[in-house]
């Protein structure tokens, strides 16, 4: 059964939000959804770039009160 997991990477510079997402994607099962929270201004573009290149599925990408909420489904 697929799961949804929240990864809180707000206020972090190292290893940073995208590294945190990759870490959790590796631990997840195909079909799982991860919601990444990030205050890094670059995440809104950096994360979709990686997700699209590696072939996972972008579900949503929005900035709410200064925090990026990015949902990704593990596709492979």
């Amino acid at each position: 059964m697929s799961e949804t997991k929240l990864v809180d990477a707000r206020d972090t510079f190292c290893p940073g939000p995208l590294m945190e997402l990759i870490t959790h994607m590796k631990q997840a099962s195909v079909g799982d959804t991860i919601e990444l929270l990030s205050t890094d201004e670059g995440s809104g573009a950096d994360v979709p770039e990686w997700v699209n290149k590696v072939g996972h599925e972008m579900l949503s990408n929005e900035k709410i009160e200064g925090v990026w909420h990015i949902k990704v489904r593990k596709a492979k």
């Binding site: 510079f13 290893p15 940073g16 995208l18 590294m19 670059g42 950096d46 770039e49 990686w50």
Partner: peptide, 10 residues
Amino acid sequence: YPIGRIHTIK
């Protein structure tokens, strides 16, 4: 390198 620049710290 895993992400889109050569180090995770901008």
